[in-house]
Design a protein around this nucleic acid. Sequence first.
RNA 1: GGAGAGGUGGCCGAGUGGUCUAAGGCGCACGCCUGGAAAGCGUGUAUACGUCAAAAGCGUAUCAAGGGUUCGAAUCCCUUUCUCUCCGCCA
Length: 423
Amino acid sequence: MIEIAVVRNNAPEVVEKLKVKNFDASGIIERLQQVDAERRQTQKELDDMLSEGKTLAKDIGRLFKEGKGEEASELKERTSVIKQKTKVLQEQLNNLSREQNDLMVQLPNLPHESVPAGNTVEDNIIVSSHGSLPQLHDAALSHWDLAKKYQLIDFEWGNKITGAGFPVYKGFGARLQRALIAFFLDEAIEAGYTEYQPPVLVNEDSAFATGQLPDKDGQMYHIPLDNLYLIPTAEVPVTNFFRDTILNEEDLPVKSTAYSLCFRREAGSYGKDVRGLNRLHQFDKVEIVQVTHPEKSYQALEEMVEHVSMLLKKLELPFRVARLCGGDMSFAAALTYDMEVYSAAQKRWLEVSSISNFETFQSNRMKLRFRNKQGKNELAHTLNGSALALPRILAALLENNQTEKGINIPKVLQPYFRTAMIQ
RNA sequence: GGAGAGGUGGCCGAGUGGUCUAAGGCGCACGCCUGGAAAGCGUGUAUACGUCAAAAGCGUAUCAAGGGUUCGAAUCCCUUUCUCUCCGCCA
């Protein structure tokens, strides 16, 4: 969530900026200002009352010790009044704090000044394009047909044992997945990220901290018996490593990478968008996460875009980079770049990575701070990006590299894949 | 799943109703001492909210979390949670 001080000091600016995200914050902000002022007033009154009670309790204790029981009893009468009042004030304060918090979590993150206004993908800005679009022969197949032809993926088996959106990879398909994961992790490690294998189930606190709760409740698989959530991305566990943590300034940036399974309910999706590997309930992804100094976060964002670009170039896939417009951005992001590869048989751009700077939005929720040079604690910035999501990379690789003889494997994957062509 | 023992500052660890404003130790920082270092000595060393233009200072809360008893709770009671040990199950 954004910081209360920002609301307190720049309310009109907050409302203005959130318009870029198509969010009308005026009502919430107005109420917040009232609640914040009342809360502070109440806290002051309560603190004073508690202070008086504390002093009295000490006096009473002292008097008892000195054997002046009668004087002590007189003081006791005053304490009952104080008790009554503190109880009422405490309750008021709790209510106000709760209301303030409820309002705060409804506010999306403020967009960076470079975020274009707009509602849909049409309003996203294509920042750059790389590589040339492959020309396929007339008999070119979609990746789901190729998967069948070469026995790479069995969608039917997945359907049978679980349901739609849970494919079974087999043979060269499974091996290609394994090769990609190893390649992505090795590249991330090379770029200075530390590798982790996180849990794929997280608790409520973790899901809240990175912003999945309460905003995207229905998008995650939930296990009620233990109140745990299946992660939609490794961002959730990895960023939460640093929940309630105060880092040293010299430890920044903290760069982490993790391969994990990801689970998304994708409620309401249907049609050709979800055909084949285009949209799954369970998929594989290597994620990169950074915790940075606030002054370095946009530099880190560029670096992450560069990293993912490098991966796509090495995989010889044509891709483009889009800066998302306000309406297309997530609740928690301040600035997001999407990376899209061209899938030649489908003739579509597929989103394979989303790289975002959350500034202090997540760190404020999870109390992730660092001790700055002045010795004060300051919220760090968090960022993350896919590097990369497997299924659509797989789709593009299969479609773009198909020939009459078989499917070519990019050079960079061959050491991992141990074969140059799927036949 | 059953039984038992626990959760105290960055860490170890004392503390069973009233200067707990949490002993002591370790670590860390600064200073003294030293040719330099070590040892020694001294000082300091949490987080949040509030107050203040800000800092300092001050107030309040925090001894796993929440509630209760009491004039007063780290300490007593209840609930929850987590960790450890043993048993059971188990890759």
